[in-house]
């Protein structure tokens, strides 16, 4: 009869909502469609942070991502677009972590140290991703044809598939 509050943990939930709000600010300035999509995403993430329903996290992050794409289509500068995409990805990660920890340990358990570590490593990975992305933009903007850049990305994608093959799902 031990009661466990299986709700998303506080730190990660707040971080997820904050990331989504950043995405809303960045992309909402360039397109009204982006504003609507990001606001929807923010609401979904907020509901997910309270109820702990995992699909809502995905839908919310997708909304923020769609807003970033819409802003990119409307001609947002690369830094802004990068920031918005990164915000969507981080919102997805933090939201997922919050729901996970809530389901496995509950709100009563001490999860703060773990959450801060997860936030830090994900943000670091995000920073690396943004740098790589900006380098790709610089290569593309340096006069290389778009198709070459795309080919480069597809190569990375194939590498990804190869890595997955190498590590079988069940060990």
């Amino acid at each position: 009869m031990n009661r466990i509050t299986r709700k998303p943990t506080i730190v990660s939930s707040v971080a997820a909502v904050a990331a989504a709000a950043t995405g809303l600010l960045l992309s909402g300035l360039y397109s009204s469609l982006a504003l609507v999509a990001a606001a929807g995403g923010l609401i979904f993430l907020g509901v997910a942070a309270v109820t702990g329903v995992r699909p809502l996290v995905t839908v919310g992050a997708l909304g923020v991502f769609a807003a970033a794409v819409a802003a990119g289509v409307r001609g947002a500068p690369p830094i802004i677009l990068l920031g918005a995409v990164l915000a969507a990805v981080l919102a997805y990660d933090f939201g997922g972590t919050a729901v996970d920890l809530g389901e496995e340990l509950g709100r009563e358990a001490d999860t703060r140290r773990l959450e801060v570590l997860r936030l830090a490593t994900s943000s670091l990975a995000g920073f690396g991703a943004a740098t790589a992305s900006y380098l790709v933009y610089l290569v593309g903007a340096g006069g290389q044809p778009l198709s070459a850049v795309v080919l480069l990305l597809i190569t990375v994608f194939v590498l990804f598939v190869a890595l997955r093959r190498e590590q079988p799902v069940q060990r």
């Binding site: 990119g72 992305s133 850049v149």
Partner: peptide
């Protein structure tokens, strides 16, 4: 190009 580079993230 901006969107393509955003895919890298």
């Amino acid at each position: 190009l901006v969107l393509v580079s955003g895919a890298v993230v």
